[in-house]
Design a protein around this nucleic acid. Structure first.
Lengths: 330, 330
DNA sequence: TGAATATTCGAAAACGTTTTAAATATGTAA
DNA sequence: TTACATATTTAAAACGTTTTCGAATATTCA
C-alpha cells in the first residue's frame, strides 16, 4: 500500500515538513539546494499528496463540479468535454457527478469537494437551490432560471429558437402550422412552443390547438401521434416545427408513409442539430443548439463568479438555423 | 458562508462531538432520545459533513473513479451512465474525471480521492500503470491488457468481432473481401483486422493487402479512400468489413456514388451499432458492442476486486451481429 | 443494599496537510 | 568585532472528521 506521507519525505530529505510543503507548492522561500534535495526525495519515495489532507486545510479545491442526471446521448458528452477543456485554461479540474439525488449534490458542494458547480438536473428541489445560493459557492443552473449573489442561469434561448423557427417557416410562404411538442413541464419544451406561437401571432397567424401533438422528444412517440393525427382525417399543415430533431424525424416518417412529400408538400424543421440530420433523407433543416458553446460559456461565467468579477445573472445562448432539405422556398 | 461543523452540532445538541459522529453515522451505541436530539440539531443548523475531514480519517471513500480522455460521442455517456447505476447498487459514488494527463489520474487515485478506478485513456504510460498496480488500489483498464493483483482489463473482444464479421460475410457467399481499417496503433483496430483475416484464412480465403484501406474511424476518411480505390481502377470486392459504423457509412457513400449498389453488388458490415444504423439507407448491418453491458460488467468486476473476492484478470465482452439491410443472402 | 455488568458518553489521539509565527542562520555595514 | 537586516528553516496550531478507550451512569442480580 502506498502510504508515504509528507512526513516520510521530510525525514528522507532531512528537513521539516513545513519546508517540504513549501518546496512542493512552489512557495518561493526555500533555498534552491534544499528544494532540489526535497524534490529528489519526493520522487524517490513516489510521494503523492493526500488530497483530503490538503483540501481540509487549504482554502479552495481548484475544482469545479458538473452535476448531471444522465450522460446518455451525444449532448452531454459534448458539454462535459468542452467544459473540461475550458476549465483547464483556468487551472481547474472538472469533476463530473452523475446523480439523481439532491443529497449528492448538496453533500459534494457544501461538503467542500468542489468550489464551484454547474447543475443540470430537473429534480433539484427549491430547498436545495435555496441552500446552494445561501452557501455563497458559485453555482450555475442549466435548466432553470435562478439568480442570486453567486448563482446564475445559463440556458439555451428556447423561446428565441421557437421564434426563429416560426419566422423562417413564415418566410418560406407557409400559411398553416403544426408543432410537435416536447416533454410536459420541460423548460425547453415550453419555451420553444411559446416562442413559435409568438412569432406566428406577430404575423397574424394562429395555430390550431389540435395541430400541436405531444412528441416527448422521441422519434416513435412523434411518429405515432402524427400518424394518428392524419388517420383521424386532419389535414396536414403546411409546416411542422418539432421540439427536437428526433421527433422531427418521426414526424417525417409518418408524413411520408401517408403519401405526403417532405419538403414539397409539408415542411419540417427540427431543433438541436444532432449528427443524424446530415444522414437522413431529406436532410433535416434544424436549429442548432451548441453544447460546445454552452460548455465554454458556462465555465467562463463560473470563473467570473469565483473571482467575484460579477454577480449572478441569467444568460441565454442563441440557436442558429441550419438550412438543409426538409424545408424549401415555396 | 456555510461553515457549520460537527462541533457546532455538538454544542447545539449539548453533547460531545464523538456522540454526534456516532449518531450521524448510525453507529448503534447512542440512546434513541439523544440521537433524535442530535439529528434535530444537525437539521436545524443545516449541517453537512466536510468530506475532506471525513475521508482523511476514514478508511475508504466509497467512491469509484472513471478516468477517461474524452466524453464526446454517444458511447462514453452510455458507459458512464450504466456505471453510475451499477455503482449505486453497491452504495458507491462514481466520480468521472475527463483527463489527458497521467498526473491527474495518479494524483486522484493515489491521493485517496477514490478507492477504485476505471481507466480509459490511451495515453497512460507504463510507469503509471506500474504505479497503480503497486498501489494495490483496484483498477480496471478498458483499452489495454493488464493483469495484476488488483488490476484487471475488460475489453471488447475485437478479435472475435472481426472473426464474426468474416464468418458472416463468408456465410452469405462472398468470395472477395476488403477492410476499412480503423486507427493506426489502436487496440480495437488491430484486433478487428486480425480477427477478420483469421476467419478468412480459416476458410482458405486471403484478402488482398491493397483491399485494406485506412478509414481512421471517420466517415469522410473512409469515403475518400474508397473513392480513390475505385478511381484507381481497382475492382470492388464482394464485401467490406469496416472497423466502425461511421467508416462503413463513408464506404457505402463512395460505392453508391460510383454506381455500385449496396447490398446487391457489394456487402458492407460495420461495427459498434450506433444510432445512425437504423436511419440510413440501406440500414446498416453491424456488430453491436454494448457499452451498457461494458459498464455493468466493469463495476461488478471492480467491486469483486474491492472485496478481494478475486484477483485481476482479463475479460472480453463479445459483440453480436445485428442483421439489417447492407448485407443480404446472395 | 452492594456489587457486578451493561449502556451511554466524552476526552483525546489520529488522519495529512497548510500556514503562522518564531527561531536560527547568513550576510552586511559600521 | 558588533549590531542589525535578511534569508532560510522549523515547531506548532489548525482544518473537521472518526475512532479508541476510559469514565460515568444506569441497570441487573444476588
Amino acid at each position: 500500500m502506498n502510504k508515504v506521507t509528507i512526513k516520510d519525505v521530510a525525514r528522507e530529505a532531512g528537513v521539516s515538513i513545513s519546508t517540504v510543503s513549501n518546496a512542493l507548492n512552489g512557495v518561493d522561500v526555500v533555498q534552491p539546494k534544499t528544494k532540489e534535495r526535497i524534490l529528489e526525495a519526493a520522487g524517490r519515495l513516489n510521494y503523492i499528496p493526500n488530497l483530503n489532507g490538503r483540501n481540509l486545510k487549504a482554502a479552495g479545491t481548484k475544482a469545479a463540479g458538473l452535476f448531471i442526471s444522465s450522460m446518455r446521448g451525444a449532448f452531454y458528452g459534448t458539454l462535459a468535454d468542452s467544459m473540461y477543456w475550458e476549465c483547464l485554461k483556468y487551472g481547474y479540474e472538472l469533476y463530473i457527478y452523475i446523480t439523481h439525488k439532491n443529497t449528492t449534490i448538496v453533500n459534494n458542494i457544501l461538503g467542500r469537494r468542489v468550489d464551484a458547480a454547474v447543475i443540470l438536473y430537473e429534480g433539484v428541489t427549491d430547498e436545495t437551490v435555496e441552500r446552494l445560493i445561501q452557501s455563497e459557492i458559485p453555482v450555475i443552473f442549466l435548466d432553470r432560471e435562478v439568480k442570486g449573489k453567486n448563482a446564475s442561469s445559463i440556458v439555451f434561448d428556447s423561446f428565441h429558437e421557437g421564434e426563429q423557427a416560426g419566422e423562417y417557416l413564415l418566410s418560406l410562404g407557409n400559411k398553416s402550422f403544426g408543432h410537435i411538442y416536447g416533454v410536459e413541464g420541460n423548460y425547453d419544451s415550453i419555451k420553444r412552443y411559446e416562442g413559435f406561437v409568438h412569432a406566428l401571432k406577430r404575423a397574424g397567424v394562429t395555430m390550431a390547438l389540435e395541430n400541436v401533438l405531444p412528441g416527448r422528444f422521441e422519434k416513435d412517440a412523434a411518429y405515432q401521434e402524427v400518424k394518428r393525427f392524419l388517420e383521424e382525417g386532419h389535414k396536414a399543415p403546411d409546416a411542422f416545427f418539432a421540439a427536437n430533431d428526433l421527433s422531427a424525424l418521426g414526424c417525417i416518417r409518418a408524413l411520408t408513409e401517408k403519401g405526403l412529400r417532405v419538403p414539397e408538400d409539408v415542411h419540417v424543421i427540427g431543433c438541436d442539430d444532432i449528427e443524424l440530420c446530415e444522414f437522413v433523407d431529406p436532410k433535416l433543416t434544424t436549429i442548432r443548439t451548441s453544447f460546445e458553446t454552452m460548455g465554454i460559456t458556462v465555465v467562463d461565467h463560473l470563473m467570473e463568479l469565483v473571482d467575484k468579477k460579477r454577480g449572478g445573472s441569467i444568460e441565454r445562448i442563441s440557436g442558429k438555423i441550419i438550412e438543409r432539405d426538409s424545408c424549401m422556398a415555396r
